[in-house]
Amino acid sequence: MQTTDKPHILLIDGMALLFRSFFATSVFGQYFRNEHGVPTNGVQGFARHVLTAKQMMQPTHMAVCWDMGMHTFRNDLFDGYKSNRPAPPEEMQPQFDMAKDISKMLGWKNFGEIGMEADDLIGSMACKWQDEANITIVSGDKDLLQLLTPTTKIAFTKKGYSIYDEYTYKRFLDEYEIEPSVFADVKAFMGDSSDGYPGVKGIGPKTALQLIQTYGSVEGVIDSLHELKPGQQKKIEENLEMLLLSKKLATIHCEMELPIELNDLLIPSYTNELLEQLEQAGFGMTSRHARSLYTI
């Protein structure tokens, strides 16, 4: 259970907020170009999202986690992993580095590792400090539900910059009737079209959840195949290799080595000098938003 006497870590899925912010305005042709003509709409929205979350959630510590390129260890496991996703629009290309730059300017610690996903960094940090701190994850990725614990909750982006769909450990138990840690087993059966892996063909979300509720895990279902209906047995037997592979793809890797201490994530105070630097760097909207939220 989360308590107020512990540090509160805010873990930000940087890429999720950057993409969300980019498409929220680019659909109207609004790119907020700087004096050099470079689009900044995604960056400005990302920073506004995080500043608002920081003001609402009052963390003591914060980390921003990033994907570092398209290729990860999951692509080595399965060529089709995320292969159906289009390349980012041209206007977004320069904003990846810009987002990390503005994050650094604001004193937020950026983390990313080639070959891993932001989810894996978030998961590793959540596991590392779950006994020392209360943790809030901000993202739009439902795969992160598997990270819920009594001290870790997830705020899923919903509308604008300040409305979230918040999941706690208790809410998940009430809705799914399984432990969050086996949510990846549900995904293994149902697959994920956005990530490009099929799971078991013919088994949808409802049946996948029922199987895990009854047998506890992918391995538990396999051990109890003789108890299933003939049709389900056949589907699983015909897709057994993909089922086991899908579980590996769906499972967040929570054992990354993190050579950092909790105090490295302390959030600094903002100053007029910093906000003036943001103005000079072409992030006037971000600077004005920061001023509106915090007394400098």
Rank of each mutant, 00 (worst) to 15 (best):
T168Y: 10
K170Y: 11
E35F: 08
T214N: 14
L17G: 11
I114K: 03
G204S: 05
E261V: 00
I212C: 11
F189A: 08
T60Y: 11
K153A: 09
L278H: 10
K187E: 11
V138C: 15
E166R: 13
D174L: 06
Y169L: 00
G45H: 04
D13N: 00
Y294E: 04
D131K: 15
L258H: 05
I122N: 10
F111H: 03
I12F: 12
F46N: 02
E238N: 15
Y294V: 09
I137Y: 11
L211N: 11
A24Y: 09
Q146D: 10
R288A: 15
M285H: 12
L293Y: 14
D5W: 14
D120R: 05
H36G: 13
L106I: 03
L18S: 12
G42R: 00
N134F: 12
C65H: 08
E179K: 15
F96D: 01
C127G: 10
E237N: 14
N41M: 08
A16K: 00
W129V: 05
M256G: 08
T271P: 09
F156T: 03
R288G: 07
Y81I: 00
I9K: 05
T168Q: 07
G199K: 09
R171Y: 07
Q55P: 06
E276F: 09
R48F: 11
L249Q: 04
R171H: 08
K109G: 00
I114A: 03
D165M: 03
L148T: 00
E91S: 14
A47F: 09
Q130M: 00
F156I: 01
N239Y: 00
G216S: 11
G216P: 02
G199Q: 01
L293I: 01
T60P: 13
A290P: 08
S287M: 06
K54W: 13
H36I: 03
M57H: 12
E132D: 15
T286G: 11
R33Y: 05
L144Y: 03
F189Q: 01
K82N: 09
Y167W: 15
G282T: 08
I114F: 02
L266S: 12
T286Y: 06
G191C: 04
F28L: 05
Q93T: 12
T271L: 03
L275W: 01
S193F: 13
F172V: 06
P86K: 12
P205F: 00
K248P: 11
A47M: 06
K187L: 14
D119F: 04
F111D: 05
K100Y: 02
E113N: 02
I203S: 12
D264E: 02
M105K: 13
F23N: 04
E273N: 11
L17K: 08
M242S: 12
H253I: 02
D76N: 13
G45M: 02
G204I: 01
M56W: 10
T251G: 02
T72S: 02
Q277R: 15
K229C: 00
Q58L: 14
M125P: 10
E175L: 15
G140R: 10
M116G: 02
I154Q: 04
C254H: 03
S181H: 04
T3Q: 13
K235I: 04
E179F: 08
A155L: 10
K201T: 13
E117F: 07
L148E: 02
S246Q: 06
L77E: 14
L225R: 06
L17R: 07
V27K: 14
S246N: 07
A250E: 01
S193T: 15
